[in-house]
Design a binder for these strands. Structure first.
Lengths: 348, 348
DNA sequence: CTGAAAGCGCTTACAG
DNA sequence: CTGAAAGCGCTTACAG
């Protein structure tokens, strides 16, 4: 096969030459600032026509070099595979496009080294601003952005080094747990699993979880917790361990993330008989997970509102570092059986 | 809150000044070409040290303007929410990073106008190459890439305007259908649903589906098909319609995409009793879908091999437009019950 | 061994 | 109303 022929891209100079004017005039016309500069209407029309005929496309990199704005907004996420972050990305795309910006999204696979690496790559590409989503250690990237004088917002997980937009983890977990409580016959019958001890979101959710237990008179000291991280295999292992106990599976499970729920799904597939009568609450949402064969309550984070809050901040010039915007998540009652269950209100 | 202080980024000129040398030398040293130019080792060492101390980061846009290579690889996908494309993206990221490239990914929401829009945006950012994934009308973007002299590869859905890398839809669908056939009591008991009539992948899969039916003596003329597109709601509607027939649900369902399967999952949740004895084959894979409460065979496209084929092509300079690389997908037997089912081999 | 210089494609005061 | 010119940050023959 032949090598691709060398096609020279056309520039404002080409247009200037064939339109019989200067590159400056072409630039002015093409940028829409020609009226301000009182360029002759006919000249403007001619330039526009020629540009169109020649199929001119501005080189945004050259423009960015001059104007110091690239129209790029960087976005760093843990994973693409994950409905929550995927939804965030699609909403951010929409928001970016509506502002004439182009998002550039990279994933870290939840690895801190990779996070630094990709953030540097985005900054080297001269992104105008940065959205750092789901980072458990946002400070390092926040600092990199500072060095490049780039505005950054921490999304989903907060940090002191930038403005943060997060879901209301505590209230959400509490509401979710309130739905679970009627199923638990004893404090030992309800279990919290997933996430990492000491991690911001996990701890807040655990607080909400415990508040609901306490309000329901199920105590708190005895509530059991498995910090099995954010991987399907580790949460699966934790579930196998639970099932192997003399008392067997707890009846009510609070599952802290969609990834942990993925481990639960495989457990359910292989050992459905151990899950008779079980009910699950998950702080996340996935359409297939919602169809698993047991009652399941899901807390769907308000991706639209989270996105809007990010861009509202980026749209204005103030630096609100250290502050947080907290967005309420939405309860989704996913399985048929669960609908009939009465909600036991916390006695406040 | 205070506005962000203006931080001037440091350039090679800053380094040159404090290292007491010229910007050219700095450039040479920082690019690693200094040995070739026989720069003094001490000079090189000093420049490196100063650059590090000052926290220098190259402006890739400026470099790109000069070298005409940006290190950006554009990627266009239908959706981020969708395990298949998400997996593709994560693999392409890895491949790009290992080559020192930066991927820039945008979604089209399966809208052709949007596809053109985002492709233009990527080209304006001067991507070095383009991966167009899951486009049912790739020609327009292929042409845009030609105009910009950018190499493009069509991934997942082929086109004549570029090199294509696709899964073996026909063989995959046939193998999948072979697993389904033992469950069907009559030709009317097996149904194909999802996708778009006339669309490349759909038609190939339908061909494979029919081949397997024919080989099994289940005829082909009577096999029923619902082209309900790629949306959960439309496939759900198609399922409701199927169930409403006098003969009710077919026992064996071939579901053409993960999106259509999502519609099936909601159907299953609400109307599980109508699906007793049903078995499903899906040309796609999702970890939660694999845990649905019925036997399910899934064809997992070989995302790693697809990605590798793309980059193998982009790594070399030839133009293979019009040619296709076909990658075998992998059968995943997902549900417990299904494992026991004997495979009825096609009599060839 | 190293510096001066041109140039990538664009924008934008400035002068006329 | 419009053009010449400088400059964004970098690379790379070229001359010395």
């Amino acid at each position: 096969m032949a090598k691709r022929p060398k096609v020279r891209k056309i520039t404002i100079y080409d247009i200037a030459r064939t339109a019989g004017t200067s590159s400056a005039t072409v630039s002015l016309v093409l940028n829409g600032t020609w009226e301000k500069y009182r360029i002759n209407v006919d000249t403007a029309a001619k330039v526009s026509r020629v540009a169109k005929e020649m199929g001119y496309r501005a080189n945004l990199r050259a423009r960015g070099l001059r104007t110091n704005r690239t129209g790029l907004v960087g976005m760093v996420i843990p994973h693409h595979r994950n409905r929550f972050f995927a939804g965030l990305v699609e909403n951010c795309e929409r928001a970016a496009h509506s502002r004439g910006l182009c998002p550039i999204v990279v994933s870290t696979q939840r690895d801190h080294e990779t996070e630094i690496y990709v953030a540097r790559a985005l900054l080297a590409q001269q992104v105008d601003s940065m959205i750092l989503a789901g980072s458990s250690q946002p400070d390092a990237v926040n600092r990199l952005c500072d060095e490049s004088a780039i505005r950054c917002v921490n999304l989903d997980l907060p940090g002191q080094g930038a403005y943060s937009v997060v879901s209301d983890n505590r209230a959400g977990a509490r509401a979710l747990t309130e739905r679970l409580v009627p199923f638990a016959r004893s404090p030992a019958d309800i279990h919290f699993m997933g996430g990492i001890e000491g991690e911001h979101a996990t701890e807040l959710r655990l607080t909400g979880f415990r508040e609901a237990l306490e309000a329901a008179g199920l105590g708190t000291a005895t509530a059991e917790v498995s910090f099995c991280g954010y991987r399907p295999d580790t949460s699966r292992a934790a579930l196998d361990a639970l099932a192997a106990r003399p008392e067997g599976m707890p009846r009510a499970l609070f599952i802290n993330s969609i990834t942990a729920l993925e481990g639960f799904a495989t457990f359910l597939r292989d050992r459905l008989h151990l899950c008779r009568g079980c009910v699950v609450a998950c702080f996340d949402w996935d359409p297939f997970a919602a169809c698993l064969p047991l009652p399941i309550f899901m807390m769907r984070q308000d991706v639209e509102a989270l996105t809007e809050a990010c861009f509202d901040y980026l749209d204005q010039p103030e630096d609100w570092r250290g502050q947080s915007k907290v967005i309420s998540p939405k309860l989704v009652v996913a399985a048929g059986d669960a609908k009939a269950v009465p909600v036991r209100r916390a006695a406040v």
